[in-house]
């Protein structure tokens, strides 16, 4: 009976791990670096504007926090004549 229970019982550590990852992803987002996206946006824009002129409105930055990885997507519309203006 005991032996049967020993083998049939599901492991609990994977559940702990998963619950923590999801919880902490949210808690980290809530405290502190909520401002990170804005900072990254400004710095990325600054770096790009050294080389070409871009319209602030034509830039979209998205951040997504997942359990495993977070992604930062930067979408910039580069006008046809951007290079010329910067030069």
């Amino acid at each position: 009976m005991n032996l049967f229970r020993f083998f049939s019982r599901a492991q609990s550590a994977p559940a702990a791990r998963e619950r923590l990852q999801v919880l902490l992803a949210h808690e980290r987002a809530a405290t502190g670096d909520s401002d990170l996206v804005n900072k990254l946006r400004d710095e990325i824009l600054k770096a790009i504007s050294k080389h070409m002129q871009v319209d602030d409105e034509k830039v979209s930055i998205k951040m997504e926090r997942g359990a495993q990885v977070s992604t930062l997507a930067v979408d910039i519309e580069i006008p046809f004549d951007a290079g010329k203006k910067a030069a």
Binding site: Q11, A13, A16, R17, L20
Partner: peptide, 16 residues
């Protein structure tokens, strides 16, 4: 207990 899957493993905690 970690080996049995009933305690977070070292790597789990390190990764988190």
């Amino acid at each position: 207990r970690a080996e049995r899957g009933d305690m977070l493993k070292v790597d789990d905690v390190l990764e988190i």
